[in-house]
Design a binder for these strands. Sequence first.
DNA 1: TATGAATGAGCATTCATTCAT
DNA 2: TATGAATGAATGCTCATTCAT
Lengths: 199, 199, 199, 199
Amino acid sequence: MAPLNEDQLKDIRDERKKQIMIAALKVFAENGVKLTKIGMIAKEAGVSHGLVYHYFSSKEEVLFESLEWGMEVADTKKKLDELGKTILSPLDKLKSFVTFGLKEGNSDIFRIIQHLGKSDKLPEHIQDLVLNSGEIYIESLLPWIIEGQKNGEIIQGDSREILEIFLNVISGIMADDLIFWNHNIDRKVDILLRMLSTR
Amino acid sequence: MAPLNEDQLKDIRDERKKQIMIAALKVFAENGVKLTKIGMIAKEAGVSHGLVYHYFSSKEEVLFESLEWGMEVADTKKKLDELGKTILSPLDKLKSFVTFGLKEGNSDIFRIIQHLGKSDKLPEHIQDLVLNSGEIYIESLLPWIIEGQKNGEIIQGDSREILEIFLNVISGIMADDLIFWNHNIDRKVDILLRMLSTR
Amino acid sequence: MAPLNEDQLKDIRDERKKQIMIAALKVFAENGVKLTKIGMIAKEAGVSHGLVYHYFSSKEEVLFESLEWGMEVADTKKKLDELGKTILSPLDKLKSFVTFGLKEGNSDIFRIIQHLGKSDKLPEHIQDLVLNSGEIYIESLLPWIIEGQKNGEIIQGDSREILEIFLNVISGIMADDLIFWNHNIDRKVDILLRMLSTR
Amino acid sequence: MAPLNEDQLKDIRDERKKQIMIAALKVFAENGVKLTKIGMIAKEAGVSHGLVYHYFSSKEEVLFESLEWGMEVADTKKKLDELGKTILSPLDKLKSFVTFGLKEGNSDIFRIIQHLGKSDKLPEHIQDLVLNSGEIYIESLLPWIIEGQKNGEIIQGDSREILEIFLNVISGIMADDLIFWNHNIDRKVDILLRMLSTR
DNA sequence: TATGAATGAGCATTCATTCAT
DNA sequence: TATGAATGAATGCTCATTCAT
């Protein structure tokens, strides 16, 4: 009889928004932003397209909020923190990180960012998010590279340039065929890391 | 003015088709197949969109014929043949090939194929082309890998798997930011090739 | 808390309905029926859009009931009755009525009716209301016109036609820029009434 | 065989655009801008909605270009010029102008402008057009008012204010029921003009 | 009674494709 | 051969209406 109380409503709202954002991240990652239709997100989330617009004001808003939220809760970030605390060698940290990132679902944000990088006229707040996201990885990974160079594990040279090359390769791979990479993944990641390792 | 005779007409036909296909390959490579509008191809080719339909029955047909023709005449192929005849070491051949491929324009077909790999429902004849295209490179490159393994330049292991990993990395890169890779290209290609080289 | 008894519930019901109808008349008058969204009415009334549907079965029903109720209780009607009882000359009664009607809020029903007059396919019961509404004013005003013609204040001719012309002008004005008319209103109404007066 | 030459194409283009603009002015005038669907314009013009977008980039553009063109070629303007050259008295010029303007089709622009005046956020170039359009009438009509005041035909007072009141009444009427006004039009216009006339 | 979550029909706009010239 | 006029299917978004709580 009585309407739902505020907390219950907030729960539903949050739940639905999350549900839609998870779907959005997946579909955006798979198809790129432009080719993602709102209907695809709605279908993936199991709701009507109308509902998507009940929670988000536009497709752009879905993208922005999903990315923002995704970057906040991203397992990738947790993984980085977690790895930072282990006693693994820098190179092993990188390997572990790449292995993690290539698992399906873990690379969604990376892939979306990459798609976005290729669009011309991004709205500014999304542009900011994209630029910022790059920085997050660089912040975490650059110290590992430097440390690896110090202990002789990683090749010498401009650390940042080396990292950029590496990230470029990784993001290219992620945009590609994840299934291929998940077969025999350790072997493949080993080969990938040879790029950087002094052996 | 006398009407053109048949040969002249055929020349015009061929010329126009080529002109459109060159434009198509460029635009498809830059934007992906779905996001490429017929109008974009027509504009790039300097013809009306109507004319595109005069020579091709559909966008899909433009894609198919362009790819087929492009793979036939591709500079990449010539480059492979050419390199095959040099006395460069296998690793140096690979380097030279990658360096060539990263130059703007030389990777169009590669990039289109990669875009296509991500679509679900490709018409069969295009599917065949895509699969086949991989084979072309494999045919040329696999012997180099094997030779490199024999002379100790290239890491041991399943030659074909190594090549596939390598091609995957390369195609990922090509889909990405070519401008980045063309800065300081030799240094970058060197690092890339460390994946395969024993030193 | 004891549950509300039936009378109390009915009071709430009536209060809420009135609240919504007042809001509806205002918003319909300002925006026209088609351009009025249920959400606009709900917001103006300070209730949720869901509640509007609790009391009315459709937007059309909101319109119909609001009009019906509005015509019943309209201040305009009271004003007409009131003026009827004064000893003002017919022309002065008309002036006073027009001045009253041009004040913001007093012309809502007039304006809605006018908007409706322009729609094609009105449901029959609303059509009836619209036609009927005209009659209400005519009933009150026509005697004034006739009286004015008798005493020489108002121009001769078919009384009903003269009234229709006059009402047409008034309703056109009301649909327009009320703010303009409320500046220096007496002067403007004087000019308006020159149409009818013999001077 | 040969494609149409440039002149022929231009003719078709101009013809189609005109056809669409005429339809647009009519439909916009009848329904107001917001309630006018592109489909309604297309249907009125006897073309597909797609074609409307072939010639105009958006609904707003249809509105703008149609208004601009309509104001340029408007018979109203010609009528004003023409009347200016006659030897009619100022009051008779006004009568003649109003009579002309109330004929169906002659008031489209007036009515659209009036609809627009009630919208809030008009794009600036349309806003300009609206403001400008008012001025056009004022420019032509004000001298008539002044002249009429001089020769005693028209009531004394701030000429511009009198004109504004008059235009307000006229535009209100035009928004209304033109069919009503076109019955017995001379009689009605006579009554209307009594507002301004000293007799 | 009261809320707002949820749905789907409808309209603006884009673009592949057809066709008259 | 070559052009661009013309069509209509598909997609983003809005809003009336329904319904669970």
